[in-house]
Design a protein around this nucleic acid. Structure first.
Length: 361
DNA sequence: TAAGCGTGGGT
DNA sequence: TACCCAAGCTT
């Protein structure tokens, strides 16, 4: 048996990591201290959905606002769709917000307001995949679950110097993670692994000198921790171009609700042309009037393409204003002075900024 | 299995 | 500047 505080080959990964976590755990709004009673499953679920592919720093203010406004799953289930989407605006991956609402309504309506306490039950809910089901089961319900996120993949790939490139290597990494996951305290263990990945076993320049697992780490022994995880090469990102249509009448701007599926689904936005590769010219809708192409535009990078969005402006006048809905489909006039509160996704918030910077005319 | 799906911060 | 990356899920 290892002497406490001294890391030896006999000490397991979980023992070394949990001892470190008891002292160095990050204090986060949705987290209970190490060894304490589990937090409210609603809080765990809400934080885990927000944290999918999103940094802790970005999530914290959204989490605080959501929990204050909708303190229970029943309260969230009663929210208006538009209010929920607007509150999520800026956080990205908007399918998460749509699934969040669907999940809350199912739990509140069909499950008596109680989240399932097993991985299998959680996995069946909208927006909850393998990682999130395992994380909630372990953190909120004390289950032994193998929690594998990007942090865990990086830590495990270095511990065992796994050469199989991601994403093909995911299955292998999961088996290895299973092998080091303890029977008890799986929730603390999962959070300890993620803390380690976020603060010590970082993608670049890992702080191996302060790592509680350094003595057990094969990549460290080889002197090449940054080599892992090995990743398959990624594809080039194309550029698409399009035009946003700024139609303003009587101090208000025409906004449209985007379809539920696809990019920025369910979000409010400016009407735009199609976004296509190669198209360069300003594109205008079939609305007669004195269109003004603006010199400024917006460049915005999405996950799988970059967008260069030009802006064309129209002041249709009272008669023309009534034809807008017919030409562009359903939408609403939003007061220009209140656009900051419309809950627009970032790409359109930037268009608003660009137009506002031009002044009233 | 692979592609689609946001955004902001770090290097 | 141009990448890379972050507590992934859905289809």
């Amino acid at each position: 048996m290892a002497v406490d505080g001294l890391i030896t080959a006999e000490r397991t990964v979980a023992e070394a990591l949990l001892a470190h976590y008891r002292v160095h755990a990050r204090r986060l709004p949705w987290r209970s201290p190490p060894g304490a009673a589990p937090p409210d499953p609603y809080a765990v679920w809400l934080s885990e959905i927000m944290l999918q592919q999103t940094t802790v720093a970005a999530v914290i203010p959204y989490y605080e606002r959501f929990l204050a406004r909708w303190p229970t799953v029943e309260a969230l289930a009663a929210a208006q769709d538009g209010d929920l989407m607007a509150a999520w605006a800026g956080l990205g991956y908007y399918a998460r917000a749509r699934n969040l609402l669907a999940c809350a309504r199912f739990v509140a309506g069909e499950l008596g307001g109680r989240f399932p306490d097993t991985e299998e039950g959680l996995r069946a809910l909208p927006g909850i995949g393998a990682y999130t089901a395992a994380a909630i089961a372990a953190i909120a319900f004390g289950r032994r679950a193998v929690v594998v996120d990007g942090n865990v993949e990086r830590v495990v790939s270095r511990l065992f110097a796994v050469e199989t490139p991601l994403p093909a290597g995911k299955a292998e990494l999961r088996v290895l993670a299973d092998g080091i996951t303890p029977e008890r305290q799986a929730g603390d263990f999962a959070q300890a692994m993620m803390d380690l990945g976020a603060t010590i076993c970082t993608p670049t320049r890992p702080a191996c000198l302060t790592c509680p697992l350094a003595a057990m780490c094969v990549a460290r022994a080889r002197g090449t921790p940054e080599r892992y995880p090995v990743k398959a090469p990624k594809k080039a990102k194309p550029t698409r171009t399009g035009t946003a249509w700024w139609i303003e009448h009587d101090g208000a701007v025409w906004l449209v609700r985007r379809p539920d599926k696809g990019l920025l689904g369910g979000m409010l936005g400016l009407p735009t042309s199609d976004w296509r590769e190669g198209a360069a010219a300003m594109a205008l809708p079939d609305i007669a009037g004195d269109w003004t192409p603006l010199n400024s535009g917006v460049r915005h990078v999405f996950t799988h393409f970059a967008l260069e969005l030009g802006i064309a402006r129209l002041a249709p006048g009272p008669a023309g204003a009534e034809r807008i809905a017919k030409a562009l489909g359903p939408g609403q006039w939003w007061p220009r002075a209140a656009l900051a509160e419309a809950g627009l996704p970032t790409v359109f918030a930037r268009v608003v900024q660009a137009v506002m910077a031009l002044g009233e005319d």
